[in-house]
Write a protein that binds this DNA or RNA. Structure first.
Length: 279
DNA sequence: AAGCCAACCTGGACGC
DNA sequence: TGCGTCCAGGTTGGCT
């Protein structure tokens, strides 16, 4: 059984970034509706007033965060577990749990919807972005060449399960439970294996598998599970769910060996793996 | 001090 | 049908 949520991880956030960019680049913010709602970091209407009049220069992604960047200030957004960003015509009715609406000089609007309220939406000075949380706390970008070395160094210093180390955003930024499990499957590594008991060679292989998995998922437009939880800025679903090797496939057949995929719980989070292919 | 774990929150799945 | 219970997940903060 697939879990009923499709949580945005790096490929989904990158997909949102790319689909958002043509609608936001060069556009001016001409109005805001910021509802004071308790997200993980609450939306503060006073703080959001600084975003009025901003001309969007670009959209950056760091880990699972997006920064909609103007010359002076940027909106730093995290989709949490259920967050969505959508560009829509104002005539379309607002979905439930719409916390933020940014009116653009194109006549359209950017909407931030997050039923489970694990997301965040704050405004920060653009020049300080790399220097303050959350960006300052994030580890390597898994798509960068430096990621392999960072993973190796971190693994040598801890005996936590490798799946849990992958979820540590201060090591690799942007990997969540779906892609952590998928990368381990590609690398043939058991999710519960202590990080410091993996050889350098196998860690390099894992870093490579993480990168490949994320790049494939980005190319597919992200993962949308059966409930249709994830969509890009224009409402399109992603196509990576059909390529999942282990995630959500407990008791199903391993496509490589024909064995049975298992689920175990590691520190409160499900891990999926093929006992025959992963050690 | 590393590492575990509860809390946050809601909708969907499931059992009775 | 309808109500209650459980579960998913990213991140933070508190505890050991």
């Amino acid at each position: 059984m697939l879990p009923s949520v499709a949580v945005p991880e790096l490929p989904e956030v990158e997909t949102v970034r790319r689909s958002l960019l043509p609608h936001l680049e060069g556009r001016r913010v001409v109005g805001l509706e910021a509802r004071r709602v308790r997200l993980r970091q609450g939306i503060e209407p006073d703080e959001w007033r600084a975003f009025e009049g901003v001309v969007v220069r670009t959209i950056q992604r760091r880990g699972k965060y997006l920064a909609v960047t103007g010359d002076e200030v940027s909106a730093v957004l995290h989709l949490g577990m259920s967050g969505r960003l959508a560009v829509a015509d104002p005539s379309r009715p607002h979905a439930a749990h719409t916390h933020l609406v940014v009116h653009l000089d194109s006549g359209r609007e950017l909407r931030f919807v997050d039923p489970r309220r694990f997301g965040s939406a704050v405004v920060r000075p653009t020049r300080t972005l790399p220097l303050v949380p959350p960006f300052a706390l994030l580890g390597a970008e898994p798509l960068d060449d430096a990621a392999g070395g960072v993973l190796r160094d971190a693994a040598g210093r801890t005996r936590v399960a490798i799946r849990n180390l992958q979820l540590d955003q201060t090591v690799l930024a942007g990997v969540g439970n779906i892609y952590a499990n998928e990368a381990l499957a590609r690398a043939g590594i058991h999710p519960g294996r202590p990080a410091n008991r993996l050889s350098r060679r196998r860690l390099d292989r894992l870093a490579w598998a993480v990168r490949e998995t994320l790049e494939d998922a980005i190319a597919a437009g992200g993962t949308t599970l059966e409930d249709g939880g994830f969509a890009n800025a224009t409402g399109e679903a992603g196509n990576f769910a059909v390529d999942l090797a282990v995630y959500g496939r407990d008791d199903a057949t391993c496509r490589r060996c024909g064995g049975v995929i298992r689920r175990v719980v590691l520190t409160g989070r499900s891990a999926y793996f093929c006992p025959h292919c992963q050690h």
